[in-house]
C-alpha cells in the first residue's frame, strides 16, 4: 500500500468511528462523554503547540479554558450575543492571553515557567470565584445553545456532530501548522535554544506565537464547553484539570497531532469503561498511564509506528 493511501485511511477510519460512535452508543450519558472528548481534543491540540512542540511547560491550561468559557457565558447571557459570535470573542480572548502570558514568559524557563503558568491558572480561578459580574462561586447558568435559524443544537446528537466539525477543522489546522515552517521552528526551540539563536531566529516571536495558538485553542474549547454544559462554575477550572490535559498529551504522544487526539480520547473514555471496578477504577487508570509513560515515552501513538521507521525517520 502506498504511503498516501495509508495516510488517507489513517484519517478516514478514525473519522468513520467518530461519526458512528454516538449512533452505536445511544445512551445519553455516554453521548455527553463523547462531547467532552471532542472538547478536550481541541484543548490538547492547543497545548501541544506550546508544550509538545515548543517544549515550554504550561500548567495553566485550566485558566485559559476558563477564560474561554466565561467569555462565551458572559457575552451570551449578559449581552445576549449569539453563541456563534462569542466564539470570535473567545478567539480574541485567546490572542490577548497568548500575548499577555507569552511575553512575560520569555524571561522565565523550565520549572519557573511551569510555576508562572500555575500562577496564571490559579489567579484566573480566584478572580472568577470572587468577581461580582462572574457571579462568584455560584457560576453562570442558562447559557444558550447554538442555533441555525429555528434549528437548535440542544440535542446531544446534533451537538456532537457540530463539535465534531470544530474538531476536524481545528485538527487539520493543527496538523498543517505542525508540519510547516512554524512547526519546525517550534521543535527547534524545544531541541536547542541556543542553536536557534545561532541560525538567526528572534526567539520571542515563535514562542509568543506558540502561546497564542495554545490560548486560542484552549479558549475556543472553553466556549464549546460552556455552551455544552449550559451552566458553569469556577470549581471546574482547577489545577487538576490542567494536569489532566498534560496527561492526555503525554499518554497519546507528545508532539504528534494524532497522538494528542488519541490521548484525549483514551483519557476521557477509558476511566468511564473502568468504572465497573468500583473504587479501584482510578488506581487502575493511573497505573496504566504510568506503564505507558515508562515503556512508551512517545505515547500510545508510537505503537502504530514500526520501530525501525520511528528510529530512522525521527519525529516528523
Amino acid at each position: 500500500m502506498s504511503d498516501k493511501y495509508k495516510k488517507i485511511l489513517m484519517v478516514l477510519i478514525p473519522l468513520m468511528i467518530a461519526i458512528a460512535m454516538p449512533l452505536i452508543v445511544t445512551d445519553n450519558y455516554f453521548r455527553g462523554i463523547f462531547i467532552m472528548t471532542l472538547i478536550y481534543i481541541i484543548v490538547v491540540l492547543g497545548l501541544n503547540f506550546i508544550t509538545g512542540l515548543t517544549g515550554q511547560m504550561n500548567l495553566g491550561t485550566a485558566g485559559i479554558f476558563a477564560m474561554g468559557s466565561y467569555t462565551t457565558a458572559l457575552l451570551s447571557t449578559k449581552l445576549g450575543i449569539s453563541p456563534w459570535l462569542t466564539i470570535i470573542g473567545s478567539i480574541i480572548m485567546g490572542l490577548i492571553i497568548g500575548v499577555g502570558l507569552g511575553y512575560p514568559s520569555l524571561r522565565v524557563q523550565g520549572v519557573y515557567l511551569a510555576l508562572t503558568t500555575i500562577g496564571f491558572g490559579e489567579i484566573v480561578r480566584i478572580l472568577i470565584s470572587n468577581f461580582k459580574f462572574t457571579n462568584g462561586i455560584m457560576g453562570i447558568r442558562d447559557i444558550p445553545a447554538f442555533t441555525i435559524g429555528s434549528f437548535s443544537f440542544d440535542d446531544k446528537l446534533a451537538r456532537y456532530y457540530l463539535y465534531l466539525v470544530f474538531v476536524v477543522i481545528m485538527g487539520v489546522v493543527a496538523y498543517r501548522i505542525t508540519n510547516s515552517k512554524w512547526g519546525r521552528l517550534f521543535k527547534a526551540i524545544r531541541d536547542n535554544y541556543e542553536a536557534v539563536q545561532a541560525v538567526g531566529v528572534d526567539i520571542a516571536k515563535p514562542k509568543v506565537l506558540a502561546f497564542t495558538l495554545a490560548a486560542i485553542y484552549g479558549c475556543v474549547a472553553g466556549s464549546l464547553y460552556a455552551v455544552h454544559m449550559e451552566f458553569i462554575t469556577p470549581s471546574v477550572y482547577t489545577f487538576d484539570l490542567s494536569t489532566t490535559f498534560i496527561v492526555m498529551m503525554m499518554l497519546g504522544g507528545i508532539g504528534s497531532v494524532p497522538g494528542c487526539i488519541l490521548g484525549a480520547v483514551v483519557c476521557t473514555i477509558l476511566p468511564e469503561l473502568l468504572r465497573d471496578f468500583g473504587n479501584w477504577y482510578w488506581i487502575i487508570f493511573s497505573i496504566l498511564v504510568l506503564l505507558v509513560i515508562l515503556f512508551r515515552p512517545n505515547g500510545i501513538i508510537s505503537f502504530l509506528k514500526t520501530r525501525k521507521k520511528s528510529v530512522k525517520e525521527g519525529v516528523k
Binding site: 519546525r184 521543535k187 527547534a188 531541541d191 542553536a195 541560525v199 538567526g200 525521527g314 519525529v315
Partner: peptide, 26 residues
C-alpha cells in the same frame, strides 16, 4: 555573519535535513 557554537549545538530530535533547513532560516 555566521557563528558555529562550541559543543555541537544541533537539534537532536529533528532530522539531519530539517537541521539544515533551519540553518537557512534567515
Amino acid at each position: 555573519l555566521v557563528y558555529i557554537p562550541e559543543g555541537r549545538e544541533v537539534f537532536p530530535k529533528m532530522s539531519v535535513k530539517d537541521n539544515l533547513v533551519m540553518g537557512a532560516y534567515s
